[in-house]
Amino acid sequence: MMLDLITQQAQKKLWEQFNNCLTSEVAEEFLQTLLNLMMIVFVVNYDYRRNIKNFEGRYQFCSKDGQVTIGAVFHNGRMEVIKKMIERPNITITFRDGKTLLNFIISPRQDILGSMLRHDVVTDGNLNYLYKFGFMAKQLQLMMPQLPQ
C-alpha cells in the first residue's frame, strides 16, 4: 500500500517535470526526467512494458560540454539507467543541450532533420535504436495524464 502511494507520488512528480520540459523553454533536466519516467512506466504499465520484451539495447547519451553522461540499458525486459559511459552502446547520441535533445526526440515542434543538419545532435551507431527510443518517448508524451494547472 505504502509502496503504491510512493510510486504514484513519484509518477505524479515525474509527469509534472516531464510536462514542464515539454512546455517551458527550460529543458536541461529533460533527459533524466524522460529516463526516470520511462523506468517507472515500464514497471506500472503492461502495454508499455511490451516495448522492451526481448529487447536488448544500449544507449549512450552525452552532452557536448561533457556535463551529462548517461547510459540507458535495456536487458531481459528491464531498463537500467547508468550515470556514466557504458560499454558497447548500440548508439551514442551527443547533444548540444537538453533543449536540442528534446527538440530532436519529442518536441511538438520536433525538428529531427534540422537538429542533425545543424549538428545540434550528432549520432554514432545504429539509428534504428534511436527510432525505437523515439517511439517509446512519444508514447509517454501521448500517455501524459491531464495535470492540474
Binding site: I112, L127, Y131, K132, G134, K138, Q139, L142
Partner: peptide, 10 residues
C-alpha cells in the same frame, strides 16, 4: 521503413 517508428502513433 524504420524511420517511421517514432511516428507510429502520430
Amino acid at each position: 521503413a524504420l524511420t517511421l517508428w517514432p511516428e507510429l502513433d502520430t
